[in-house]
Simulated scan of single mutants.
Amino acid sequence: MSAEDVYNRISVLRAERGVSRKDLAAALGVHYQTIGYLERGEYSPSLFLALRISEYFEVPLEVVFSLKPFPRLGSEVK
């Protein structure tokens, strides 16, 4: 990982809402493979795309994206 990595919870948000990569891509006007690249951290979104993703899921931008890795699910419960 490099100093410019952007971490995200797109796959978690999709799973919670039952949204496929293709459905999310169609709603955002991008190719479905772009969603996969984003989820794997192989591609950092433009600010415009990041804002559209957070708007789609109706959550603040920092819920979807972070400059630091997100804690593993359940680790904050300990």
Rank of each mutant, 00 (worst) to 15 (best):
R72F: 11
G18D: 02
A15L: 15
L13D: 03
G36N: 03
R9V: 00
D23E: 14
F70S: 06
G41M: 10
L51F: 05
V63W: 09
E62S: 14
S2L: 00
E42N: 14
R72Y: 11
F65N: 04
R9K: 14
S11R: 15
R52P: 09
Y37K: 06
S11D: 15
T34Y: 01
A50E: 01
V12K: 01
F48E: 15
F70A: 07
S54W: 06
S54T: 00
A27K: 00
A26I: 11
Y7V: 09
A25E: 09
A27G: 05
R52E: 12
S44K: 06
Q33I: 03
V19W: 06
R17Y: 01
K22D: 11
V6I: 14
S20Q: 02
E4G: 12
A25C: 03
M1N: 12
V64E: 01
H31R: 05
S44Y: 00
F70M: 06
S44L: 10
H31L: 08
L24W: 06
A15E: 15
A26W: 08
R72N: 12
V63I: 12
R17M: 11
F57A: 06
V63P: 04
V30I: 05
V59R: 06
V59W: 10
G74E: 04
E39G: 08
P60F: 00
V59F: 00
V63S: 09
V30L: 07
P60H: 10
E58G: 11
Y56L: 10
T34Q: 08
R17E: 06
A25P: 08
L61T: 11
A3Y: 10
A15M: 14
L49K: 03
Y7Q: 09
R14E: 01
P69M: 01
F65T: 07
Y43G: 04
A26Q: 12
L49D: 01
K22R: 11
S44N: 15
E39T: 04
E4C: 07
E39P: 00
R21F: 02
L73Q: 09
Y43I: 03
E42C: 03
S54H: 02
G18Q: 02
A25S: 05
L73C: 10
A25L: 00
D23L: 04
F48Q: 13
L73K: 06
R9C: 04
Y43D: 04
E58L: 13
V63T: 15
G29L: 00
L73I: 07
P69R: 05
F48H: 14
K78N: 12
L24Q: 06
A26C: 10
S11V: 08
F65Q: 03
M1V: 12
L73S: 11
R17C: 07
E39V: 01
K78D: 12
L47S: 15
V12I: 09
R72W: 07
E42F: 13
L61F: 10
Y7E: 01
V77M: 14
E39C: 00
R9N: 12
P45R: 02
Y32W: 12
S46C: 08
G74V: 04
S44M: 01
A26D: 13
A25T: 07
Y37L: 13
L49P: 08
